[in-house]
Amino acid sequence: MPDSGADLLVVDDDARLRSLLQRFLAEQGHNVAVAADAAEARAALAAMAFDLLVLDVMMPGETGLELAEALRRGGMETPILMLTARGDPDDRVAGFEHGADDYLAKPFDPRELALRIRTILRRAAPHAPPSPAPSGPIRLGERWFDPDRSELRGPEGTLRLTGGEAALLAALAARAGEVLSREEIAAAIGTPEAGERSVDVQVTRLRRKIEIDPREPRFLHTIRHRGYVLRPGP
């Protein structure tokens, strides 16, 4: 997936901001569609596939958080960048809990938004191995993670990973057996400003997909006061 020329959907109930973002992001080389609320966003998503959603949190009716959570439950893995007027840590964590890949507080510099979009698109790009790259797929019980394709496969087929989940698993797989601090993980997945709690949220989401019992993890372990470690195995 390229850094530019991506298909973006901007969802915000502020008509002026929608227009500004559509024009600015188009100048960055992207193809930009807009929606004023969740209903318009659903219609746009039904009509075409997007590379990334820029989604406002505070919208009348179905909020951005509710829409993101519903899309994730429905199996959509398109990256989501949340916009909100509330930028404290609890709000950022709520965004990640509802399926966001990144979070940007209003007011923001459009150049920072463009940079965040480029980062997310690079992170979600297929055939982009982490550095250093692990040697081949990583076994996690009956599932295998292929870092070259950012794919998690099992007896049931390919399991859906969001961009954030794939980036987290790739970062841990690249240093399998090593304990990574939350700060190292946040830097590796491109969200250093999001804080430690957001890493914990991403870990919780990932465990639901790789562990038989997320409450008793076999592969993704918490090392108290230090961070997390991935221990592959049968």
Rank of each mutant, 00 (worst) to 15 (best):
R92A: 12
S150D: 15
R153I: 03
G75H: 07
A170N: 13
E156T: 14
T84Y: 02
P79Q: 03
L121R: 06
H98C: 12
R123M: 08
F145G: 04
P134C: 04
T119S: 14
L65G: 03
L71H: 12
D88L: 05
A167W: 14
P79M: 02
R86L: 08
G64C: 06
L169V: 10
A133K: 15
P126R: 12
R72V: 05
G154V: 10
M76C: 07
E112V: 09
L71T: 09
P110H: 04
I120M: 11
I80C: 02
A124D: 15
P126D: 04
T158G: 02
R160W: 02
R160T: 13
D101A: 03
T78M: 10
G163W: 03
F145K: 08
A68Q: 13
R111I: 01
I80R: 08
I120W: 02
D88H: 13
L113M: 13
I138H: 12
L169T: 09
A94W: 09
R118E: 00
L152K: 10
D148S: 14
A133T: 12
R149I: 00
D102V: 00
R92H: 04
L168P: 10
E151S: 07
R116H: 05
L168M: 14
R160L: 05
G74Q: 13
R116F: 00
P137F: 00
A85I: 06
R116M: 02
G163V: 01
R153H: 07
L115S: 14
T158N: 11
G154K: 12
P126I: 07
E66H: 02
A125P: 06
L65A: 01
R73N: 11
D88G: 09
A170P: 14
L115M: 12
G164D: 06
P126F: 07
R92F: 01
R118V: 00
G87A: 11
M76G: 04
G163I: 01
I120E: 05
G87R: 10
G75P: 13
T162L: 01
T84K: 03
D91M: 10
L115K: 11
T162S: 15
R73H: 14
W144K: 05
F96Y: 15
R92S: 04
P134Y: 11
L152C: 05
